[in-house]
C-alpha cells in the first residue's frame, strides 16, 4: 500500500482541494511571519536611541563677527554658520528666481537674514564645499565652491552652476536666545 504512494495531479478529488487550501493558507501565514521577523534585523541598523538623543547641537554665536563663517558638527556632518553682512544679504535677496536651478528665495532659507545656517555637504555626491576660511575659493557667486566636481553655491547656499542638483539644505534650528542657536 505504501509503495503505491502517488503525488500526481490525477490523484485529485475532494481531499486534494482541502489539502491545497490548507497548504496555501499555511504557506501564507509562514511567509508573513518570516517577513515580519526580518524587520528587527533591518531596524537594528537604523539610528539607535542614544544616537538620536545626541542629534541636537547648541551653538554660541555671540563671538562670530560680521562676515565671519564658522563650522560646527551636527549629526557627524559639518554645518556652516555665516554671519552675513548687509551687502551680502542684499546680493542674496536680489537674485532673480529664474537664475536659480533650484528656486528658493533667500528669506525662506534664513530665519534671521544676518544668520545663514546650512548643512555643508554638497548635494552632488557629498563632498564638503570650500569657502569657510577667508583664503578658500568661494566660487563665481561668492558663496561656496565644491572642489570635487565644480559646483558653485551663492551667498544663500543655493546651487548656481555645476552638477549639484539642489541647494545646500537648511537644517532644522531655532534661536534659543539672541546668542544661541539650537540645531536639530
Amino acid at each position: 500500500m505504501a509503495n503505491t504512494v502517488s503525488t500526481s495531479p490525477e490523484h485529485s478529488g475532494e481531499g486534494e482541494t482541502r489539502r491545497d487550501f490548507l497548504l496555501i493558507a499555511t504557506s501564507t501565514v509562514g511567509v508573513i511571519g518570516t517577513a515580519l521577523a526580518v524587520w528587527p534585523f533591518i531596524d537594528s541598523m537604523n539610528p539607535a536611541a542614544d544616537t538620536l538623543a545626541l542629534a541636537t547641537t547648541g551653538v554660541d554665536i555671540s563671538a562670530i563677527e560680521d562676515g565671519q563663517r564658522i563650522t560646527v558638527v551636527w549629526r557627524g556632518k559639518p554645518v556652516f554658520i555665516d554671519h552675513r553682512t548687509a551687502a551680502v544679504i542684499e546680493a542674496a535677496e536680489s537674485v532673480p528666481m529664474e537664475d536659480l536651478p533650484d528656486p528658493e528665495p533667500d528669506s525662506a532659507r534664513a530665519e534671521k537674514p544676518e544668520w545663514l545656517v546650512v548643512v555643508g555637504v554638497c548635494t552632488h555626491l557629498g563632498c564638503i564645499p570650500l569657502g569657510q576660511k577667508p583664503s578658500d575659493p568661494r566660487g563665481e557667486f561668492g558663496g561656496w565652491f565644491c572642489p570635487c566636481h565644480g559646483s558653485h553655491y551663492d551667498t544663500s547656499g543655493r546651487i548656481r552652476k555645476g552638477p549639484a542638483p539642489a541647494n545646500l539644505p537648511v537644517p532644522p534650528y531655532e534661536f534659543v536666545d539672541d546668542s544661541t542657536i539650537s540645531i536639530g
Binding site: 528587527p40 534585523f41 531596524d43 537594528s44 537604523n46 539607535a48 536611541a49 542614544d50 544616537t51
Partner: peptide, 8 residues
C-alpha cells in the same frame, strides 16, 4: 539603545 538590540 539599539533598535531591537535586546531581541537580537
Amino acid at each position: 539603545d539599539v533598535n531591537y538590540g535586546w531581541l537580537l
